[in-house]
């Protein structure tokens, strides 16, 4: 689990704040589509796209280390899905399983990096407002807003649960699959309950489903 510091929003130092978040969102989406469209095995093109992204990150002045740490967390998920999906990909016959999985993971990782850059450069709320203006359903935007709002609680909750477990297993590390799934299930339940309470608290203070903060 990433530390809380890593979960802090990476606020960019130099921000083109006045630039429309919607335009940035459009560009990021185009970038993601291009990345996804690159055929598996075209490594040079992927490399070029990565260079473009690196340039943009440098130009925006996004806090690169925090961005990198968040990206690493995502990478685990990405790698897992690429690994499982590669087996069913028809390209496997041509490239072999390992290369297919690697290429798929690389593409997904690049797309994830682009989106992370976007949310780091513009406040998450700005990006959400842009998504909303582009006509996305409120429920979807809400969900994202909500996730952002209490993700640090998720980290805390997990830390508390593992501590409680450790206290009762007397330091023996016993991270079997049953323990792990129990832990994750418990976390999910707690998170759901917590999210209902957080949502209630938001309603109490006039939340109508439209993200508004001190920047937008």
């Amino acid at each position: 689990m990433p530390s809380e510091a890593a979960l802090e929003p990476a606020r960019a130092r130099v921000l083109p704040r006045r630039a429309d978040a919607r335009a940035a969102l459009g560009l990021a989406s185009v970038y993601v589509v291009v990345v996804v469209a690159v055929p598996l095995g075209w490594w040079r093109v992927l490399g070029l796209l990565a260079l473009v992204l690196a340039f943009v990150i440098g130009w925006l002045g996004v806090a690169a280390r925090a961005l990198f740490r968040r990206w690493l967390c995502l990478l685990l998920v990405v790698a897992f899905f690429a690994g499982t999906a590669a087996a069913a990909n028809p390209e496997r016959a041509r490239l072999g399983l390992a290369a297919t999985a690697l290429a798929m993971a690389a593409k997904s990782a690049l797309a994830a990096a682009a989106m992370l850059t976007l949310t780091s450069a513009y406040s998450f709320t700005n990006v959400l407002a842009a998504i909303r203006r582009l006509g996305a359903p409120a429920v979807f935007v809400d969900g994202l807003y909500f996730m952002e709002r209490y993700r640090h609680l998720l980290a805390q909750e997990l830390a508390r649960m593992t501590t409680a477990r450790r206290a009762r297993t007397f330091g023996r590390s016993s991270l079997s699959w049953t323990v792990l799934t129990g832990l994750l299930g418990g976390l999910l339940l707690r998170t759901l309950e917590r999210s209902l309470r957080v949502h209630d608290a938001m309603l109490c203070r006039g939340w109508t489903g439209e993200p508004r903060d001190l920047e937008s």
Binding site: Y150, R194, M202, R205, T208, R212, D213, L214
Partner: peptide
């Protein structure tokens, strides 16, 4: 913790007035 969910204290206190 159920009530505080913004990134800064100021944003959180301003949440109600903004809404």
């Amino acid at each position: 913790d159920d009530q505080l969910f913004c990134n800064t204290v100021l944003e959180d206190v301003a949440f109600g007035p903004r809404n």
